[in-house]
Simulated scan of single mutants.
Amino acid sequence: MTDEDLYVDGDGARWAFGTGFTDPLHGIDQTVPDGVDAEDLAACCLALGDDALVSAQRLAEWCTRAPELEEELALANIGLDLLGQARLLYARAGRADGTGRGEDAYAYFRTPADFRNVRLAELPGGDFAFTVARLLVLSVWRLAVCEALTTAPDPVLAAIAAKSVKELAYHRRWAAEWTVRLGDGTDESAARMRAGFDEVAPWLDELLTDGSAARLGAEPAVVAARSRLELFHVLADAELNRSAGVSPLDTSASPVPGSGRNGQHTPHLAPLLAELQSVARAHPDASW
């Protein structure tokens, strides 16, 4: 199975993502393969799906607020990519965990304590520089995870990861270009970019030690090494690395204890979900 198979229905007809199907994995064999732990698979899909959904919601907050129309559209499109990834991952989780739940059940009808996203994704939007810094870190890390998962023993997850890699490569490139533009720009833009990475730094350890996908092929040590190397190079190009070639991501405050993977979240997740879930909860039986 390849990522292209995710766009073919049971009769072989092509379709545009998000149209015509209530199940985003319609027509795909979703049997959990022998040798794959269904609980591990469901937990991995749920964690990555929550990361994507919460990140997409934060990016949506930039609509009408970005510094340029072109960048507003770029942020909106990145958010839509992540929303699409969340749909596929939730659909896979619902089959793997045996509940048969659909994407709406995961997105709209769980409490904050039930979410398993990393906490960096849920922090308030801040200024544009912080948004760029957060998007760069999350994209670099998520890309490393998904590249590793393209060889996952579950072919559905592997296909979802392969599709996501193409999108995340663009997300990383967009964020890296803005990091360099702001970091190597004026004194004001460079200061804001440094401040953005200083805000991100305490939350980085949660990503680089995450083992939610380890049993499916994304080893934390490998993901961490690739992520740190990529971030170091981008920050060097942006002239944001500190003296002696040390990245600001390596010298900031100590890691914030706890983990969103265990349902331990900041106070910012609850209001984000309240807004995200308000319409669905007000009309739980509605169809769209």
Rank of each mutant, 00 (worst) to 15 (best):
G102E: 06
A93L: 09
A159H: 05
K163W: 08
A105P: 00
E72T: 13
L136Q: 11
A159W: 09
R92M: 05
A148E: 03
R110N: 09
K163L: 11
L143D: 02
T131R: 12
W141L: 05
E103H: 12
D127G: 13
L41N: 09
E103F: 09
F128S: 04
A121R: 02
G98N: 09
I78N: 01
G35F: 13
S55Y: 08
L88C: 00
Y170N: 03
L69C: 03
V132W: 11
A176I: 04
P33K: 08
D127F: 06
V140Q: 12
A144K: 01
K163A: 12
A133Y: 04
G35K: 07
D34W: 01
G98Q: 10
G98P: 12
R142M: 06
C44Y: 04
T150D: 07
E147I: 05
A47P: 02
E72C: 10
P112R: 06
C45T: 01
K166R: 15
D51Y: 02
A113V: 11
L138S: 13
R134K: 12
E167F: 12
P112W: 06
A47T: 14
G49V: 01
R119S: 08
V118A: 02
H171C: 05
T151W: 06
A43L: 07
C45K: 00
C146A: 15
S55M: 07
V118Q: 02
A47V: 11
Q85I: 00
R92P: 02
T31A: 15
A86N: 02
E61G: 12
A96F: 11
A96T: 07
S164P: 02
T64P: 05
D154V: 13
D34L: 05
A96M: 03
R58F: 04
E61W: 11
P155R: 03
A148S: 12
Y108G: 07
A176K: 00
T151A: 15
A176E: 11
Y90W: 04
E71D: 10
C146F: 15
D114A: 15
A161P: 02
N117V: 11
F115Y: 15
R92D: 00
R95E: 06
T64M: 03
V165G: 07
E147H: 08
A96K: 00
D37V: 14
F130H: 11
A47E: 04
D51T: 00
N117H: 13
R101H: 10
A93C: 12
L168R: 10
G84F: 13
S164W: 07
A152F: 04
R134L: 03
A152Q: 06
L80R: 08
V36E: 13
G79A: 10
V32Y: 07
G125D: 14
A113H: 13
D37N: 15
L138R: 11
L83D: 05
A74Q: 11
A113C: 10
C146D: 12
L138M: 14
R65M: 14
G126T: 08
V137Y: 07
D114Y: 05
L53G: 00
G49F: 04
P67A: 02
F128L: 06
A113W: 05
E70K: 11
A161S: 12
E70W: 03
T31S: 15
R65W: 13
N117M: 06
L88R: 12
L48K: 08
V118Y: 04
P124I: 06
D51I: 01
A158W: 02
A56M: 07
D104Q: 14
G35V: 02
H171M: 03
T64L: 11
L157S: 02
F130G: 01
